[in-house]
Design a protein around this nucleic acid. Structure first.
Lengths: 233, 233
DNA sequence: ACCTGAACACCGTTCAAGT
DNA sequence: ACCTGAACACCGTTCAAGT
C-alpha cells in the first residue's frame, strides 16, 4: 500500500475541473479555510496557476463548486427513500447535513455566505427541496411551507455549524472536552447580575451530547410546525 | 455644515482602540467585508500601520471587536425593560438583531464564525443571555432552556443573515425586487421532477415581506417551545 | 485546446527608528 | 508610551509564450 515513488508523482490523469475541485476539498479538509490557495493547489496538482484558471473562473467559483460537490454528496442518500414517517426523513436529512458539516467544517461559513447568492448556481434549492418535500408530506398547509422549511434549514445549518466549530482543535492539542471545559470555566466567571441565565445553563452546555441536542432542537421545531398546523387554513 | 478644509483633516483626537474600531465599522459598512484593510484604515485615520498594531493585536481581533461593538449596541435596548409578555420581549430582541444585521451585513458571516470561538471574548453569552432570560420567563422547564434558546438563536442569526444578503446589491443597480425576480425566474427553470417543492414556493418567496416572514418563523418556534412545555417535567 | 510560470498589484504583519 | 513607514512574505489573478 506504500507509494512506489517517494517524489510527488507526476500527473497521470489530465487536469480537469473535477480533479481541481477534488483537490480543493482535500486542501480545505486538511488545512482549513486558509489552506486553500492557488499555490498549494498548483503544487498538489503539479501544474501552473494558469492551468487552473483555464478550468475555473476564480477562487470564489472554486469555493462554490467545492461546496456544491460536498452538499450534493451529503444529500445523495435520497432521503425520500428512507423508510419511516416524514419526521424520520426530516431527521435523516438533518443528520446528513450535520455529518457533512462535521466532516468539512469549512462548509459552515461557506453555506452561511452562499445561501442566497447567485440564483441558479446556489445550493439553496437543493437543501430547500430535501427539507421541503418532507414538510409537505407532514400535511402542513401550503401557506406555511416556506416558513416551516426555512426555520428548519436555518436551525440545521446554524446548529451544525456551531457544532463543527466546537469540535475542531482550538490551538494544538485542545480536544472537544477541554474546549467545553474552558468555555464553562470562562462563563462561570461572568457577572451573576448580568448573566444569570448563561451561568445557569453552563453545566447543561458542557455535558450535552451534540447529536442528541441537535435532534432535540429538530423535535422542538417539528412540534411548532405541528402545533400550528390547524391555525392557518 | 460643509467641512472647512478640503484635504483630509489632520487627526485631532489621539488614536485609540475605540477610534480604530469605529473606523473599522465604517469601512465594513461602506465597502463590505473586503473593504477593511490596514491600508484603508491607515489612510482614514491618517496614521501608519504600526500605530494600529499598537492598539490592536491583529485583524482578527479587530473584526471581533467590531462585531462586539455592534452587537452590544443592538442589544442595548435592555429588552428586559420592554413592556409586554416574554413573547413580546423575544420579538424585540429578535428584531434588534435582525435590524443590526440588516444595517451591517458583514455581521452575518462574522457571527456565524465567531459564535463559539474563544470562550470569554465571544459575543455568544450576550446573545444567549438576552434570549434566554425571556425563555426562562416563558415558564419553560430548566431542562429545556438550552435547546429552546439555541433554536431561537440559530434561527434569528440565520434568517437575519439571509435577509441581509438578499437585501444588498448583487452587482451595480440591482435592487431587492430585481434580485428576487431573478431568483424566481431561475428557480422556475428547475426540473419539475427534481424540484417540485422549490417551484411551488417560488411565488411565496418572491412576494413575502421580510419582517413578517421573520416574525412568522419566531412564532413557529415559540409554538414549539410552548407545545413541549408540559412534556418534560 | 490546454498548459507554463514569471510578473503585477495588493494584502497582513514586523520592526528599526523616531518623538 | 506611542507612532512612522519601509520592508517582507504571501496572496489572487493575468498573460505572453509554449505545446
Amino acid at each position: 500500500m506504500a507509494p512506489r515513488t517517494r517524489k510527488p508523482e507526476r500527473r497521470t490523469e489530465a487536469l480537469s475541473r473535477e480533479r481541481i475541485i477534488e483537490a480543493a476539498v482535500e486542501l480545505l479538509d486538511t488545512a482549513g479555510e486558509g489552506g486553500l490557495t492557488f499555490r498549494a493547489l498548483t503544487e498538489r496538482l503539479s501544474t501552473g496557476a494558469g492551468a487552473i484558471y483555464w478550468h475555473v473562473a476564480n477562487k470564489d467559483e472554486l469555493l462554490d463548486a467545492a461546496t456544491d460537490a460536498v452538499v450534493t454528496d451529503a444529500l445523495a442518500l435520497k432521503p425520500a427513500r428512507v423508510p419511516g414517517s416524514p419526521q424520520d426523513r426530516i431527521r435523516a436529512v438533518a443528520l446528513g447535513l450535520f455529518d457533512a458539516i462535521d466532516a468539512h467544517p469549512w462548509l459552515a461559513a461557506q453555506l452561511a455566505t452562499q445561501l442566497s447568492r447567485g440564483p441558479s448556481k446556489s445550493v439553496t434549492p437543493r437543501i430547500l427541496e430535501s427539507i421541503g418535500q418532507q414538510v409537505r408530506a407532514l400535511g402542513v398547509p401550503e401557506s406555511r411551507w416556506f416558513t416551516a422549511t426555512t426555520v428548519l434549514m436555518h436551525y440545521i445549518l446554524g446548529a451544525a455549524g456551531q457544532n463543527a466549530v466546537n469540535g475542531r482543535a482550538h490551538g494544538p492539542g485542545v480536544n472537544r472536552g477541554e474546549f467545553f471545559n474552558a468555555v464553562s470555566a470562562a462563563w462561570k466567571q461572568l457577572d451573576p447580575d448580568d448573566y444569570p441565565f448563561t451561568r445557569a445553563i453552563v453545566d447543561q452546555m458542557r455535558d450535552h451530547d451534540d447529536r442528541a441536542e441537535f435532534l432535540a432542537g429538530i423535535a422542538l421545531i417539528l412540534a411548532g410546525i405541528t402545533a400550528g398546523r390547524s391555525r392557518t387554513p
